[in-house]
Design a protein around this nucleic acid. Structure first.
Lengths: 248, 248
DNA sequence: GAAAATCTTGCAATGTTTTGCAATATTTTT
DNA sequence: AAAAATATTGCAAAACATTGCAAGATTTTC
């Protein structure tokens, strides 16, 4: 049995039971306890579980990692969010996907601006709550705990009946020829529905972190109307995107 | 059982009851009192709880940040929420309306209990988020900023297709002859839909505050299966409710 | 493609942590 | 102040972890 396979077995057990006993795994996959120990040590170092005397337990119990996931890039994020907010006009129907950049946008939306915001993101809804002039419509469904957005048929159904003026689509990866991609299949489905549900698609993203390709495709670059980054719109790095996209 | 697990059990008990008896834990997890003592000592050193003679208490417990009256009502609320949580069984589909008592229930749901929670309440969804075994379905729609729950056709539509095992219905007023009443018409509609969407309706409420009548009617007392209050179930004040309702 | 370097795994010797018990001290209750 | 409950301490057995090592597998280098 390959090491990778054992790792998957261990992580799966942790996922199901929130813990594993070292001896149980050793017996289950028929290797020495030493090997399992080394496996657990590796997974611990990779921050996939917490190694403890006698086995390992799930990280899950105290994970509030969403809030402080990427503090260092906050400044760039604010810059992007400011540009994004400047696109908003009174009376618009705005669709906000999840993600920390969109959360920052939500934070910066002026409280006196009368708009309607649709979102499947729990933190974004909470962020918008105190702004008196913003009408919030939460797109309900099953909550994905990693991304803290709703996924599945529910949200997709709601989105199919919506045509928002503008959509801020938080993305993990964008590439001139491979388009917008994502690593979670269910999130891809929601984001596809969001694109269909909007007249205009805006991607606000830290350029440094997004010029990459992930497993599943959301859409072509051509489906994106506006790309907002921390860079100047004339920056040569953005040249490959310039033909079909408005840069901000 | 791993040491880390015991620690989680202890912290969870402290979270729920604001205190633990050393002997109770020893019996619960079936180890010697000495071991529990050592566990509590460790958790104390890690500043997770306060070690005291005979067991441990919650850190926040003696902070007089609240007015006395609020602490008083918080205690009642916790008492009610504890009773409510004890009704839950693994695998159930649970419907939680909004309100502070239900928020307290959400707080006390053990993180290792595998249940599915439907809720239209933003704070309750956020409260449930870190509990790894709970599947959260947010009932989407337009958010009412006062109550922080979704209202209108969206939620009512979703609820019409649901049959939950149990519904915790937060209420403002209940009266033996006038039934359950509410002052906001839109919230009434959602709560009516919740009652229809559940096999069993539980009303958890501070008795002192609810024995009153408001503008709009949600349902008769007969539609409520279980009434949970801070009072003993044999308290004469509850007598008028006793005929059709199980008191807890 | 062969040799060298690296990685993986199980074993054994040694070190550490965990746990329950018993004897003794301290605190709380009556 | 005595009785009861809880804490502390030291100890020993068991469980678990660490380290170094060697045999075999895999990858890299030439």
């Amino acid at each position: 049995m390959l090491k990778e396979e054992r790792h998957q077995v261990i992580l799966n057990e942790v996922r199901i039971h929130n813990k594993v006993l070292l001896t149980d795994i050793a017996e289950l996959v028929k290797v020495s306890p030493d090997t399992v120990r080394r496996d657990i040590k590796e997974l611990h170092d990779a921050n996939k579980l917490k190694r403890v005397h006698g086995g390992a337990i799930s990280l899950g119990f105290n994970h509030y990692n969403y809030a402080n996931r990427e503090i260092y890039s906050l400044e760039k994020k604010s810059k992007i969010a400011e540009k994004a907010v400047s696109l908003l006009k009174e009376g618009q129907v705005v669709l906000l996907s999840g993600g920390t950049t969109n959360l920052e946008i939500a934070r910066l939306i002026p409280p006196y601006l009368k708009i309607t915001c649709f979102t499947p993101s729990l933190p974004i809804a909470v962020q918008l709550l105190p702004k008196p002039n913003i009408e919030i419509i939460f797109i309900g469904g099953k909550i994905n705990k990693d991304s803290q957005i709703t996924i599945g048929g529910g949200p997709i159904g709601v989105l199919s009946e919506l045509k928002a003026d503008i959509c801020f689509l938080g993305v993990n990866s964008i590439h001139p020829s491979d388009g917008v991609t994502e690593f979670d299949w269910e999130i891809v489905q929601v984001k596809k529905a969001m694109i269909n549900a909007s007249k205009k698609v805006v991607v606000p993203s830290i350029f440094e972190k997004i010029n990459s390709v992930q497993r599943y495709k959301i859409c072509d670059v051509a489906s994106v109307d506006i790309l907002i980054t921390e860079l100047d719109k004339n920056d040569p790095l953005l040249k490959p995107y310039g033909k079909n996209i408005t840069l901000v």
